[in-house]
Each structure stands twice: as C-alpha cells, then as structure tokens.
C-alpha cells in the first residue's frame, strides 16, 4: 500500500508576503504529518509518497522529504492562488489510490485547515482531523488509535481503519533529520510532475448556510421587559439539553432527527 503526505510549500520565515525560494519550507504541522507517515511505513512496509502543489521551487520541500525517508514525490504544477477546494481536488486525483493521506492540521501561513477536509470529501474517505496524539500501530493489521481535540478541553478517541485522511497538529511529533547520504541521494531523485491541465480546476458549487425559518408566536406579557424575557428565555430555567445513553448509531440518528426538528437540517 501507499501512504501519502501532503506538504504545503510556504514561507518558513513567517512572512506571508514574500515568495522567495530561499525562505520557503513547510509548516511544523506538515512536518509532524510526514514524521507519522514515515513511522507507520516503517512498521507496515508501505511506500511513502509526498505531494505538493506549486512551481518548480516547491520541489525543494519534496527533496527534503525524500532525504528524510519518503520514497516518491509528486509536484502538482498549479497556481497556488487557487482556493483550497481546487487545490484539494488536484491533490485528491494524485492520492486517490493511497490508504492513508496525512496532512498538517493547518499551515502556518494563515491556513484554515480546509484542504484535508476537502480531500476527504472528494475521495469519500473517512477523516480524522486535528489529531493531538497518535499511537503508531505495530503492523498493518492493527488500526491507528488517536486523540482528537474537541471544544472545552475534551478529547475524542478515534480508531482509524481503511482509507482515511488524517491531519495532525504541529506539536505532536518532531520530524527526524535527514542523513547526509540521504540528502545527497535526494538531490538526484526524479520528481513526478502533474500539470495543471490534468486536474479539474472548477470550484464546486457552495451555498451560504441558512437555517430554515422557525415560526415563533408573538410574546404576551404586561410589560415590555416581560415580553423581551419571554423571547430571549433569560428568566426561564427550563433545563435545555437532554442526556441520553445510546449506542453510537442510535445516538447519531437522534442527533440528526433533532437537527431536522430544529430546522438546521432539511
């Protein structure tokens, strides 16, 4: 099998307005993703392929990744000013055959972390995004266990099997250094180039999110204050929220039915 790692070619000196090959590199999050891909591949004997989107200069990060242990590299020759959905579409075509697609959770040049999600959507892969802890399995028979950050300091435990897009935070792993001989070999390695014509560049249609209107009866009350209170619910303590203990599938169905009931989902 093949494990893919997506590396975004960015200005490593933290300035987002300078596009100068000398100062370019990849984010700590992407570095952590590469490190995990290499660790897993060591145990599973998978091939690691690194992918980036950008001009010739971007090949430096691919060679860097090869020097550190990746086997193959693909550069998608595409204008980086395209929005992330287009970039994700292009990447998805290149990595569709892979078992795992590793990404940084978001790049340090004001990235929003949308590319991994778009890739998962494009390929209908499972997604495990924003991981903060990963247990590298001993072999390909075992799943990857991971923790994902949720609001309020909570953590979600995930078990990743089959094809999936995984994104990790930069603090989770320090990327190994390349060996000297590895660097020398990487300088000579061929890099596959996928030209922009081969990927669809159309932006998928998107629709602004609007919840359905909900009919609310006019408030009744003697004073304006009472009527405002009635609308805003500030005085009542009706105990919103309901605790249920269900199997995951039933819980998911309940959530979806409630969302429909409240008008968030049609």
């Amino acid at each position: 099998m093949t494990i893919a790692v997506c590396l975004k070619w960015i200005n490593a000196s933290g300035q987002t307005d300078i596009d100068d090959d000398r100062f370019m590199g990849f984010s700590y999050a992407d570095q952590a993703a590469l490190e995990y891909a290499l660790r897993i591949a060591e145990n599973t004997n998978d091939e690691v392929i690194v992918v980036t989107a950008g001009p010739v200069g971007a090949e430096a990060v691919l060679r860097d990744a090869i020097a550190r242990g990746a086997q193959r590299a693909v550069r998608i020759d595409i204008d980086r000013s395209h929005d992330s959905a287009v970039i994700a579409q292009a990447i998805a075509q290149v990595v569709a055959h892979c078992s795992l697609i590793w990404c940084g959770d978001y790049s340090s040049d004001r990235g929003s972390g949308s590319v991994p999600a778009f890739i998962a959507a494009e390929l209908s892969f499972a997604q495990a995004l924003g991981l903060v802890e990963i247990q590298v399995p001993a072999d390909s028979l075992h799943p990857i266990r991971a923790l994902r950050r949720l609001d309020g300091g909570r953590r979600e435990q995930l078990e990743i099997r089959g094809q999936a897009v995984i994104s990790v935070e930069g603090s989770t792993a320090r990327l190994r250094r390349a060996s000297l001989k590895g660097s020398m070999a990487a300088n000579k390695q061929a890099i596959d180039i996928v030209t922009v014509n081969q990927v669809a560049t159309e932006t998928p249609p998107t629709r602004a999110y609007r919840p359905r209107a909900r009919a609310v009866a006019a408030p009744v009350g003697n004073s304006a204050l009472d009527r405002v209170r009635q609308i805003t619910d500030t005085s009542s303590s009706k105990g919103h929220g309901e605790t249920v203990h269900l199997e995951p599938r039933e819980a998911a169905e309940l959530i979806v039915s409630k969302l429909r009931e409240w008008g968030y989902q049609s």
Binding site: R176, R177, A178, S179, L180, G182, S183
Partner: peptide, 9 residues
Amino acid sequence: TTDRPDGDL
C-alpha cells in the same frame, strides 16, 4: 563529521 545522522563524509 557532521551533525547529520550517518553524517561522516
């Protein structure tokens, strides 16, 4: 010798 792994040349 260098500070790289396998770094002698």
